[in-house]
Design a protein around this nucleic acid. Structure first.
Length: 423
DNA sequence: TCTGGGGTCCTAGGACCC
DNA sequence: TCTGGGGTCCTAGGACCC
């Protein structure tokens, strides 16, 4: 049977979430900022119309923001995650197989649906339901492959006459759209690949679709070969309906100001380690490898630069915050060099195991701390309860290095405790 | 003064083994 | 007077995504 995919994508998602609770801003340009209020990461349609670019540093556009009365929000991921769940729940009710691809996008498997209902009509129904039940507007792209569904979705956003729903099942229609699309707008084609393709005379999505898959494979990779085939309507990428288990957990942040004090940086590492351990327990996994990195800012070229990562393997896999703090702290002391202004630090966990499914270290038969599970469970419960916060002394009591979030919206739908600078 | 965070997959090359 | 070749595993780095 011919495959049919739909991509449902929320419009200006973070900005739309903020506007939901601020009807007074309905027609006001709004932007959402990255952590530390560093960059613009989402723009309402009014902000886009003013020419604000995605990813620009806030300080570069301060004048425009003042001039046009653009309203800024610090990112509030607890709010966006909550609204995302509501949208995804609706989409999951509309199709038997759904892949939640990101916080604001989901692929639906519509194979066979066209025997029952016209695909365009179906797409419009999904859109109407999400709009009505959540207030979030979405675009829908329908096509025989995920890559074409992405392009159909882009077209739905770009051309208002489509009513935000595009059915791209027809091959002639595919060709006509592909001829209009720059190759850099194809899913999976990034900056470097765009340059390389252009140097070979491939400028539009149609040029890429007409390229020889074998040549593309040898000059690029098997990934790009799949893209070529997908552009020709041959489905190579299936839905991933069950979230694959994580291979690594990263917790890192840029600091609100440059850090030069050893103890301050040490506390930051402890905090990230603690957060990473919480995520690890959320995944119900144990980890064996811990990495720590610290770095200065590459954006200040005249300053002395330093960046280094260290990794360590634990004797036995663990999810106990105390074990991870111990090893991270040892590495931190090895990493630390005085005389630099540090911009960012992070902790990575890797090499995961399921509980009870690993080889014990022969010479340390049981290094598990007494009552580890009970203690960690209680710590997690208290921190998620919204009633309080317990933490390890090494994190410090009043950290100076926390994120800058000067434009944070309230906890409209979530608990205040979710607004900790996690995520 | 001020430039996000968290992930995945693929490839090339070295080490090592038989 | 001559120094294989193939397979596997691991790691670092690149590229991409949202």
């Amino acid at each position: 049977m011919k495959t049919v995919f739909a991509l449902v994508d929320c419009n200006n998602f973070y900005a739309s979430c903020e506007k939901l609770f601020r009807p007074d801003l309905k027609h006001t340009p709004v932007v959402v900022l990255s952590n530390n209020d560093g960059c613009v990461v989402a723009r309402s349609k009014e902000a886009k119309a003013l020419g604000l670019k995605m990813g620009v540093p806030l300080f570069q556009v301060q004048d425009e923001i003042r001039k046009h009365g653009i309203v800024c929000f610090s990112s509030n991921y607890a709010l966006y995650a909550d609204l995302s769940n509501r949208v995804m729940t609706i989409i999951e009710q509309e199709a038997p197989r759904v892949e939640v691809y990101s916080i604001d996008e989901a692929f639906m498997d519509l194979t066979g649906v066209d025997h029952v209902v016209d695909l365009l009509t179906f797409g419009k129904q999904v859109k109407a339901k999400v709009d009505q039940w959540t207030g979030i507007t979405v675009g829908v792209g329908i096509a025989p492959t995920k890559t074409l569904a992405k392009l159909a979705n882009n077209a739905a956003k770009k051309y208002p006459a489509t009513g935000s729903v595009v059915d791209l099942m027809d091959p002639d229609r595919q060709k006509r759209l592909l001829a209009l699309v720059d190759v850099s707008d194809v899913w999976g084609v990034g900056r470097r690949t765009t340059e390389k393709l252009r140097s070979r005379g491939i400028h539009t999505a149609l040029d890429l679709a007409n390229a020889d898959p074998k040549t593309i494979r040898s000059e690029f990779s098997v990934v790009m070969e799949r893209t070529v085939r997908e552009l020709n309507g041959v489905s190579c990428l299936d839905l991933e309906c069950v979230r694959p288990t994580k291979q690594q957990i990263i917790c890192s942040r840029s600091f609100g100001h440059k850090v030069t004090d050893k103890q301050e940086l040490r506390e930051a590492i402890a905090k990230y380690t603690t957060r990473a351990a919480e995520k690890l327990r959320g995944e119900k996994r144990l980890c064996r490898v811990v990495s720590v990195f610290i770095r200065t800012s590459p954006f200040i070229p005249n300053e002395p630069q330093y960046a280094k990562t260290l990794s360590a393997e634990l004797p036995n896999p663990t999810d106990d915050t105390r074990d991870l703090l111990d090893v991270a702290d040892v590495m931190f002391h090895q990493l630390w060099r005085a005389g630099f202004r540090y911009m960012k630090a992070g902790v990575m966990l890797a090499d995961f195991y399921e509980h009870g499914a690993f080889q014990q270290d022969l010479f340390r038969l049981d290094s598990t701390k007494i009552n580890s599970k009970a203690l960690m469970t209680v710590v997690d419960q208290i921190n998620h309860s919204g009633l309080g916060n317990v933490f390890f002394a090494s994190q410090g009591v009043s950290p100076q290095w926390t994120m800058k979030r000067e434009h944070l919206s309230p906890a409209y739908t979530t608990k205040w405790s979710d607004l900790r600078d996690v995520y």
